[in-house]
């Protein structure tokens, strides 16, 4: 019951934020210029452009356009993607699962590896393994993903010819995008896991577990890790949200047909309806993610209750 109320409350809060975001995106995208100049051939006449704008409603005052848009959204009509001549939401929903798959795999991989590497590093601070892990994670966290992506293409595709440079189709196509997307979250998470695990292992309840004669591995992976997960999940949540955004760069480089690439294309082509649709999808995904993280929090820490604020 309390959980249900919590989800309801959070969804309502998110709805307000989504509406604010839509308003912002609607007006900002219209600052990028007149679509008539992009969609018609360069040698079109002024009259042709006028006719195009008139037909698509770009000549109406902006508040009329906005009203029309809101009315459409209320009826689940998100407009037509001019660049593809299809309903904008349909195009966005087609691309979204591609990004989601990539981000989910990268995030699970980063989180799992980081928990194992970070915990083992924390179990023996200043050991050789700890130093290697710290150096590697720092490098991973600092390397810019576009640079890693280009270098990876240069080495594995151009140089060694092992992997395809871009596109989709075979399992081999997944390797480089996932590697590039995993690297930064992995690096950051290792450092968070290591830090929280070191303090958890020094905590009084670990002392109790040692006095009870609990096995070392169990102390690390049951007692300390469970308590360390909260801050790790906070950071992981932020990183997951930024993965959806970071997909813009990686998807563009690897020609991945996800929502990030779609968004960039829509912006370049001044496809207002498509911009709005992609932003809406991404925003909803991030809000859902945040609610899930809050629920996970309460699941992990019995002291957290869904209190009315």
């Amino acid at each position: 019951m309390a959980v249900f109320g919590f989800i309801l409350r959070r969804s309502a809060q998110s709805l307000i934020a989504v509406i604010g975001l839509l308003v912002l995106v609607f007006f900002l995208s219209r600052l990028t210029g007149d679509p008539a100049y992009l969609y018609l051939p360069l040698d079109s006449s002024e009259a042709q452009r006028q006719a195009f704008s008139e037909a698509n409603g770009f000549n109406d005052p902006i508040y009329v356009q906005f009203g029309r848009y809101l009315l459409g959204v209320a009826n689940l009509d998100f407009g037509t993607a001019l660049s593809r001549n299809r309903p904008a939401m349909e195009v966005a929903l087609e691309a979204f699962p591609q990004t989601l798959k990539l981000a989910a795999i990268a995030m699970s991989l980063a989180l799992t590896l980081a928990i194992v590497v970070g915990s083992l590093a924390a179990a023996k601070p200043d050991s050789l393994f700890d130093r290697l892990a710290s150096t590697a994670s720092l490098a991973g966290a600092s390397a810019p993903d576009f640079w890693v992506a280009i270098v990876a293409i240069l080495v594995f595709s151009v140089g060694l010819g092992l992997l395809p440079t871009s596109g989709t189709g075979t399992p081999l196509h997944w390797i480089m995008p996932i590697f590039v997307l995993t690297l930064r979250p992995f690096g950051l998470l290792v450092q968070v896991v290591r830090g929280t695990m070191i303090s958890a292992l020094a905590s009084p309840y670990v002392k109790t577990a040692r006095a009870k004669g609990v096995q070392r591995s169990r102390i690390i992976f049951r007692h300390a890790l469970r308590n360390s997960l909260l801050p790790v999940i906070t950071v992981a949540g932020d990183l997951a949200a930024s993965l959806v955004n970071g997909a813009v760069v990686v998807e563009s480089i690897f020609g991945w047909p996800g929502i990030g690439k779609l968004m960039i294309d829509a912006i370049i082509r001044r496809d207002f309806a498509l911009i709005q649709a992609t932003v809406l999808i991404t925003a909803i995904a991030i809000f859902v993610l945040n609610i899930l993280i809050d629920l996970l929090y309460a699941r992990l820490d019995p002291r957290i209750r869904f209190q009315a604020k």
């Binding site: 905590s203 309840y205 002392k207 006095a211 308590n227």
Partner: peptide
């Protein structure tokens, strides 16, 4: 066996 001061922090909260 051993018991400690401040049992709240010496019991695992989760």
């Amino acid at each position: 066996a051993m018991i400690f001061q401040d049992p709240l922090s010496h019991l695992n909260p989760v």
